[in-house]
Nucleic acid binder design. Structure first.
Lengths: 111, 111
DNA sequence: CCAGCATATACCGATGAACGGCATATCGAA
DNA sequence: TTCGATATGCCGTTCATCGGTATATGCTGG
């Protein structure tokens, strides 16, 4: 699972949202670092729907414009949980090794 | 940065290693989940070298076979640190939202 | 009055990392 | 002698993401 996909699932973990709201949520969540393109978002939404990780919650017409709300499915929640556990574990390993490096000074073994 | 790339940097954070050893380290690190293909590894190594994130540490001839050791550069260590911080933060956000969901039961608002 | 911006969904070509397989080479074990 | 482990390297394919464009409406400013 790539970063944008993970962030889309994270956005929907907060509750049902429509596409455009997901783009804004992800931008806020990442401090403006990740700005999902429309192409990326709707492709990801279609793919995740095909994989059964998200579902269409409801559709609304607001100002004669369609708003399609998506929600995380049960298996989507499981996928997000296992993915974030993986991320957390890998980050922990990397940080542990970096700390060990910093202490021993493995890069420049001058002493 | 994608997962395989991150794992290669994490492997080298433990100290200089040659390509094949990185494959094994990554496999061990991930409990056998990620088995880097030769194509993925050496392409990543070349790319990371081009980006200055890793450097060739030394070359050895063991049993008339070449062994090229790579090490993390200073900028590679910085990149790995910021990347793992990002991973940790995103995992924290996702897990917080999942916990909130579990408690309130946002998926099935039956109650 | 209408040009531009925000909202909102959707399509499409290009890019590039990763995948999977293959080639090459040596050594030890079955 | 064939197979598996070690070890590097190449190459075609796949696929998610990127970036741009199209479509449509409502609001705001010059």
């Amino acid at each position: 699972m790539r970063e944008p996909t993970f962030l889309v699932l994270t956005a929907l973990a907060a509750g049902p949202q429509h596409g455009y709201a997901v783009i804004e949520d992800v931008a806020t969540m990442t401090g403006g670092r990740v700005k999902l393109r429309a192409g990326t978002l709707y492709a990801a939404l279609d793919r995740l729907r095909g994989d059964g990780l998200i579902e269409v919650d409801r559709e609304e017409i607001v100002q004669s414009r369609l708003r399609r709300y998506y929600r995380l499915s049960a298996s989507g929640a499981r996928a997000l949980a296992s993915e974030s556990a993986r991320l957390r574990e890998q980050a922990a390993i990397a940080e542990k090794r970096l700390r060990a490096r910093g202490v021993s000074g493995a890069v420049a073994p001058v002493t």
